[in-house]
Design a binder for these strands. Sequence first.
DNA 1: CTTCGCACTTAGTATGCCCATA
DNA 2: TATGGGCATACTAAGTGCGAAG
Length: 844
Amino acid sequence: MDSGVTTMREGEEKELDPPVPQQQGDARDSKRKREKKQEQRKQQGKGSLRKGRRKKDEFEESLGDVMEGIEEEEGADEGRNLAARRGRAKRGRSNSTQGRDDGKEKQKGKAKKHKKVKMEGVERVGKKKIKKEKMLEEEQEVEKTDEKEREKGVGDELGERDGVGKESEDGKGIKEEELDERGDEGWGDTQSAEIGQGVKEEEGEEGTGDVPGKEKKQKIKEKKPEGEMKKKRKKSKEKNEEENAPGKTRKRKSKEEGEEKNNKKPKKEKKEEEKKEAENKWKWWEEEKKEDGVKWTQLEHRGPYFVPLYEPLPDDVQFYYDGKALKLSLAAEEIATFYAKMLDHEYTTKEIFQNNFFNDWRKEMTSKEQEIIKDLDKCDFREIHKYFVDKSEARKALSKEEKQKLKEEADKIQEEYGYCILDGHREKIGNFKTEPPGLFRGRGDHPKMGMLKKRIMPEDVIINCSKDSKIPEPPEGHKWKEVRFDNTVTWLASWTENIQNTLKYIMLNPSSKLKGEKDWQKYEVARRLKDVVHKIRAQYQADWKSKEMKKRQRAVALYFIDKLALRAGNEKEEGETADTVGCCSLRVEHIKLHPELDGQEHVVEFDFLGKDSIRYYNKVSVEKPVFKNLQLFMKNKDPADDLFDRLNTSILNRHLQNLMDGLSAKVFRTYNASITLQEQLKALTNSEDSVAGKLLSYNRANRAVAILCNHQRSTPKTFEKSMQNLQTKIDAKKQQVEEAQQELKKAEDAFEDTKDAKAEANVEKKKKLLKRLEEQLAKLNVQATDKEENKQIALGTSKLNYLDPRITIAWCKKFGVPIEKIYNKTQREKFAWAIDMADEDFEF
DNA sequence: CTTCGCACTTAGTATGCCCATA
DNA sequence: TATGGGCATACTAAGTGCGAAG
């Protein structure tokens, strides 16, 4: 769900929207779709019921096939091997924008449809009202069918239920669901109960030593692990004090050695500072965990740093309207500069962007300006644009001293506002500045792109700190919106942003305790999943054949999430954000079924836009029951209908929570990413390799994960060029190799002739040279491949968010790779806990 | 239940900065 | 000394998920 504030606001707006008379293609979120159908049904009167029944028959038939297909292949599974995964995910984007463009096309089509539908609407009915009426109606409808179902008996149950199918697919009918539950309770519940128990027991026994303290839930549910955890932590604490300490010093030394290879004096000083810092670094991971939900006892900070106010343009920089210079009011001018700055960005060519911008701009104009400025096309921002381009050039051209000065000023601000005191320790803040005003840049096809993002004032900001701390002073002449003392949250300040009406926060840096602890905990949850994942897989495979539609959908969705590492796919408010989906929100149009493709059976072709409008394109061969189920789910649906119409993330997550404490859909991503890294490292690393070779293996493993998670980037602008450079190098090297070969041949011939020792030595020498050159060439070639393969894959995201750092640390220690070859300074700070605690035999 | 409200993680891109190289 | 390439950092949008309210 999106921000609640957004939702509410939107809800209000939507009430004014005319209802939609016909089922149309914009039904991203099933809620709204249902409303529409409801409306439709209302208008059609009883006719819809009849139609529904007819469809029912169709469903019954189709179900026959499906059941057959599924029965045939009981227990076919374990299709999820890495090879399959690795082969997946052809890059959706062959260049930086292709994926997005594809998406755009699609979305445009949709938007049009949507508009049309809206226009056709007649009545104005509130959202909730529709919903209630709909439910009532459905209840009645379902009741009728229920009676029949009962008579028909178990065997037909599913068919009947599915038969309700399309017409009330929205429908699901409450009673129907209740019936389902009751009917299947017998085995359904025992199953999950069994699994649940099994899981819990294991958890209790396993209790990995380094589990971070868990919050409320676990404490209430099971005291034993918590107790054990504490003991173990104490133990590890002692251990750290006794054995680990020397070990650590050693480690740190080697680190320095590694880095000092290319040292210069100033660098050395820096190192010293770093070292000192590292030494009095807070080792929170060796401390006891706090009580339930309480995040801190002391929090003191300076409040956010407010970005500087607008500086008016110099008089000689003019804005022109319809060819004539026009002096704008301050407010209007500021907004004009926002647009002017972006002039050479693709954004400004988009109609939505332009319209949104122009609308918002006009709102801030004086009435006089409003009268004059009526057409964006007549606005000429070029002079302003040039002014800013020049300005940034000038900044780049500054002398060293001037740059130094600027940097010092920035450092001062950082020093002053960039840190807080949390429970007696000085911690770095992540984002201590308020976001400057500007034009909203949504990603993908965002309906709000170009809207004005307003300046944040102290009056918008809520401060959070501890009661007894020095409360931050608002800038002179201003007041805070509110000061609160809530120690159950981690943020220091917050404000509501005006585009989507969502909250923005000032929070701590990833190196902080608050973030680190959470991160650690995340990986511990994923590790617990490792112990039960087999059971969960077995269960969802069994559920593919469930009599309940709901369960089947859940099982297939979970399969996707597990096998393909899809995101959960929360529902989104339509028209507020770009049209993107995750697993639960997939629509029929996002997959294609191929009974056979490229020699593989049961291939599902995915093509949709995910988070950040990044295209997910993949062809996967799935198990037969999954395939059959998908056919069933898609039957009689429009392309724009939800694929899993009886599923949403909260249903799925509730189910997962029952299977394992703390389990939610996203955990599968973390788990599969980390386990993949571990497996790949095992498979790829050759202990004989040089450090460079090992690093390559690491990157390969990392890449496998990035591909799994579909982490993409636009091809770097400099890619072509640098690739060319590399190619030139390769060619040169090839030349050298050839020459060396000739030389060798010559030397060999000479040896043939003379047979003297000198000639022999020469041959050896040439051989060596050739070998070295060949190696260099090979290395360059590898580099080129690596680069090519990497051009659209972003490794950073998985490294930072999905891969348990302890796997990496353990690998580094085991193979003697310096950690700083893999993690840069920031990353080492973020993962300090892992670096400190993981040893070489850490197993995820 | 479903919806709302909030907190927090995850994400890609723009920009800055540093170093190697010509 | 300039250049440019690439990594690091800054930035902020866009997700997930939980718990409370309706």
